[in-house]
Simulated scan of single mutants.
Amino acid sequence: MAENVVEIEGLVKRYGELTALDHLTLEIKEGEVFGLLGPNGSGKTTTINCLLSLLSYDKGSIRIFGREMSPTAYDIKKDIGVIMQNVAVFEELTVQENIDYFCGLYITDKQKKRQCVEEAIKFVGLEDFRKFRPKKLSGGLLRRLNIACGIAHKPKLIILDEPTVAVDPQSRNKILEGIEELNRNGATVIYTSHYMEEVEQICTRIAIMDRGRKIAEGTKEELKAMTKNTETINVALRELPDEVLNEIGALSHIYSAEYTDGILTAACSGGRHNLIRVLEVLQKHDLHIGQVTTVQPTLNDVFLEITGKALRDKED
């Protein structure tokens, strides 16, 4: 069993009458890429700020690497890399000078620092931009610089908050590949994003938050198993008599069947061979069958069903 890198127990954070975190408990194991999801106002950023001891909290405990976290726990903080949504670099310094500065906060040996800076530049693909100042970089390159500044000292725990917002597809792929490589090299990663496809691609385990609470947690497969819908069948048909539609709707494990604009849509909950049984009914009635597709539930479907809102929705 992998050891817990992060242990959050019964965390409560209040702002007056507003409870931002409501007895939140999380465990993140060594070697995970842990996705933290939630609509705006769910408590994700508050959780990260408490985790880093940037915010005090009213109740609970936080342990990182098996030790109690506190504002003065510098021995713990030196092994944490933080890449927040808002890019935080010095405009008057070049790419290389920025990375050198942030790396130097943790590594004082000049030779080791020089090597780490060079490795970070290569890691994010900024070799041709090392003498550029931030204002000369595109949004995607600026994000890469931000990441390099956060990981140059080779932290064991890396926290990435929306690292791919407003970047081009090439930079996004580069960033995601980089995160996966960091994880393969031994880093534990906490990852927040509004892009569900990213979370599905790189996260080994996911927690969904809403109103300061953890409302679901598991692998993407485990989360998808929580939803009613396990498969949606779509069949293009020239016509579909009502009695045949009703027959399909009466099949076991099909809880909804609709025919709109020449498409039969059958939503399934559990069961096996649902598509075969639907096609058997259609063939029995000698109906002309066009394109057939089946769609598995996505992480976004899970999120909508569990929270009842889109990921970017604000709280009421």
Score class of each variant (00 low, 15 high):
2 A>T: 14
2 A>F: 11
3 E>L: 15
4 N>S: 15
4 N>W: 13
9 E>N: 15
12 V>M: 08
12 V>I: 13
15 Y>F: 11
15 Y>N: 00
15 Y>V: 01
15 Y>K: 02
19 T>S: 03
22 D>T: 02
23 H>I: 08
26 L>M: 02
28 I>N: 06
28 I>M: 09
33 V>S: 10
34 F>S: 00
35 G>M: 04
38 G>E: 10
42 S>W: 13
43 G>R: 01
44 K>A: 04
46 T>W: 09
48 I>P: 01
49 N>G: 03
49 N>M: 12
50 C>W: 11
50 C>F: 12
51 L>Y: 05
51 L>K: 01
52 L>W: 07
57 Y>V: 04
62 I>S: 00
67 R>K: 15
67 R>F: 12
75 D>S: 15
76 I>Y: 13
76 I>T: 07
77 K>E: 14
78 K>D: 07
78 K>R: 14
78 K>S: 10
79 D>V: 02
84 M>H: 11
85 Q>H: 10
86 N>K: 14
87 V>E: 07
88 A>R: 11
93 L>Y: 15
96 Q>S: 07
102 F>E: 12
102 F>C: 07
102 F>R: 04
106 Y>E: 05
107 I>K: 03
108 T>L: 08
112 K>V: 11
115 Q>A: 09
117 V>T: 01
120 A>H: 05
122 K>G: 12
123 F>H: 05
124 V>M: 14
128 D>R: 06
130 R>I: 15
132 F>N: 07
133 R>E: 15
133 R>A: 07
134 P>W: 14
136 K>Y: 14
137 L>K: 05
138 S>R: 02
142 L>V: 01
145 L>Q: 03
145 L>E: 11
148 A>V: 11
149 C>D: 15
150 G>M: 13
151 I>S: 09
158 I>T: 06
161 D>Q: 00
163 P>K: 08
163 P>R: 06
168 D>Q: 05
168 D>E: 09
173 N>Y: 14
176 L>Y: 10
176 L>N: 05
177 E>G: 10
180 E>C: 07
181 E>N: 11
182 L>H: 08
182 L>K: 04
191 Y>K: 03
194 H>M: 13
198 E>C: 02
198 E>D: 11
199 V>W: 04
201 Q>F: 07
201 Q>R: 15
202 I>C: 08
203 C>W: 09
205 R>E: 10
206 I>L: 04
208 I>E: 05
215 I>R: 04
218 G>A: 02
219 T>M: 03
223 L>T: 02
223 L>W: 12
227 T>L: 06
231 E>V: 00
232 T>K: 09
232 T>F: 14
234 N>R: 10
239 E>G: 01
239 E>V: 01
239 E>A: 00
244 V>W: 08
246 N>Q: 15
247 E>R: 07
253 H>Y: 12
259 Y>F: 13
261 D>Y: 03
266 A>Y: 01
267 A>C: 08
267 A>V: 08
270 G>I: 04
270 G>W: 05
276 I>G: 06
277 R>W: 10
278 V>A: 03
278 V>R: 00
281 V>N: 00
283 Q>T: 06
293 T>L: 13
297 P>H: 07
298 T>M: 07
303 F>M: 02
305 E>P: 01
307 T>C: 06
309 K>I: 08
311 L>W: 13
312 R>M: 12
